[in-house]
Design a protein around this nucleic acid. Sequence first.
DNA 1: ATGGTAGATCCTCTA
Length: 265
Amino acid sequence: MRIATWNINSVRLRLPLLTGVRDALAPDVICLQETKTPDEFFPLEGIKALGYPHVAMRGMKGYNGVAIFSRHPFTVLPDTPDWCLKGDCRHLGVMLDAPGGPIELHNFYIPAGGDIPDRLVNVKFAHKLDFLAEATEWSVANAAAPRRVLVGDLNIAPLEHDVWSHKELLKVVSHTPIEVEALNRWMQKGAWYDAMRHFVPAEEKLYTWWSYRAQDWAASNRGRRLDHVWVSPDLAPALKGMQVLREARGWEKASDHVPVMVELG
DNA sequence: ATGGTAGATCCTCTA
């Protein structure tokens, strides 16, 4: 079972790139963030033509938006929270009909949080912290459940080597101590295990995002690991492989995020 | 300290 996650930054604009993702990673399931598309304009037939007959999406006009598509059947989980009561499309949960038993899969797009890391002067940062607090409590209630997977653009790079310079990014939103603490608290309280770092030691650099604003993203290589795959502890022994599709950052009309794939056996 | 790019769009907001 291969599960991929990718912040596609407009599913309509980058639909053709999904062929490359499919061919490179052969995922059974693909979770997208920032689809930026209301459901009535979602390219449903294009996704199905890639070989993913089972599709669910939760989109809105202009911003946000998540989608899950799969070779295996699934049912969309009802009663997902209205996070921070904003009506945003930032979360989609499904129960996957997987070999070896059902998998509860959650796809998240966490608020980026704006530029100033102070909740008193920046409502976007307050929203990010509030969202993380709500997500923590939501995970606590379900922490004992088996066969859980959580993926998505969490917009936080928690480890020192999840960013190109720990020192220079300590005051930059995505790597501030208050965000890192909130993310770690979510992981601990929800009994989540970092599936990417299972394969790459904490001392090694690991990025999934490179800014559009760099003149040469590959040469400067100022990346961050903003995208994550977490699994429940019972699935940790089933982890068979992980791949970050770095080359996708160099494709024509690339997203600023690259796909991440985890294989469970 | 600053500004750089990209996408969708109620040409400004979001990242």
